[in-house]
Design a protein around this nucleic acid. Structure first.
Lengths: 178, 178
DNA sequence: AGAGGCATGTAAGGGGTTACATGATTTC
DNA sequence: GAAATCATGTAACCCCTTACATGCCTCT
């Protein structure tokens, strides 16, 4: 209950083959939901077995174009409107923060600095992405993709701010001990 | 490479049995790294086989108290200072945002509103948590736990703001169509 | 004829979840 | 003596990752 939905969603927007989906993935959802080629093909077969998608056309080299069925559309709707079954989220970065007291202060400081810089780089990357796209606004279409990007921008900014704040807190602490 | 580290980290802070760790988990890292009882015991056995922890004492009902070995401490240090192997993060909530154009605007709006309320509730919960703890400050000890909490607070605030922003953007869009 | 892209798949292994299984000790 | 808590483990199943395997079509 996961990539399955992402594939279903992409197909609902437009039918296509596994290969097509892979490329559409890279350009839209890959930032929020990475997936590998292997896995995608597997999920497509499972979706087909479950009757949520069906082959609409067969092309050149064994190419199978899929399309969503009514059952698939229903499942998609169900998932979108029911966040209760979402898997719990894991934050390796925060787990690391919990463990920072296990290493020397200067190593910890170095990590936090790298974290800040990484967040700032991500912020710049997303800002570029935003500026490089010509948005076709209003509720359907790109609207929600843009909203997701905005989330990313705000998240990166928050992470950078937080890391900078933590850095000064660390510096104050070490200062006090002198 | 994951829960393994969390367990190693907890043991590095203080030796204990699987059962002990389970409870310490709930109180500290469970927010950033959920784990089940089953899994924890499994990881402890793997850590022991790998020589990264060892049984330091055997208690009443088959209770095994573990302690970190030098090899384990080295591994912990390695992990903490090397974020490059972190697993990619997945955001079901954002995947859902990408798919919001598949459902009626009012259903989408309802979801975003629920998201905002959930973020606000989380913010309140974390604020309570912060106020309910007596912090034993300065770099070692609770310092980093507090920093992680601060991250959570800022993240929840950012999510709430973002969702409210998205709500007004949706409303403007639907307004314009009348 | 060969290169590059199109197109799909299998196998092995790690990490995580849920549910079940079992028994010893303490407390009332 | 019964109930709660301490304490550890197994089995089945799903999701994900990496690496490998295979072959067709188009273009130059």
């Amino acid at each position: 209950v996961s990539l399955r939905i992402a594939a279903l969603g992409l197909l609902a927007q437009h039918p296509g083959s596994g290969y097509d989906l892979l490329r559409r993935f890279e350009m839209s959802m890959a930032n929020v939901w990475p997936a590998t080629q292997s896995q995608l093909y597997g999920e497509l077969n499972k979706l087909a077995s479950a009757g949520q998608i069906e082959v609409s056309d067969i092309g050149p080299r064994g190419r199978k174009e899929y399309r969503v069925t009514d059952s698939g559309r229903a499942e998609l709707l169900r998932w979108i409107t029911d966040p209760s079954a979402d898997p719990p989220s894991r934050h390796p970065e925060l787990l690391r923060v919990f463990l920072l007291n296990q290493i020397p202060v200067d190593a910890a400081r170095k990590y936090v600095l790298a974290f800040a810089e990484q967040a700032e780089a991500e912020l710049a990357r997303l800002a570029d992405l935003r500026d490089s796209i010509t948005w076709d606004d209003e509720p359907p279409a790109d609207f929600y993709g843009r909203a997701a990007l905005e989330y990313g921008l705000r998240g990166a900014a928050m992470e950078a701010d937080w890391a900078r704040w933590l850095l000064s807190a660390i510096d104050e602490g070490t200062q006090a001990q002198k």
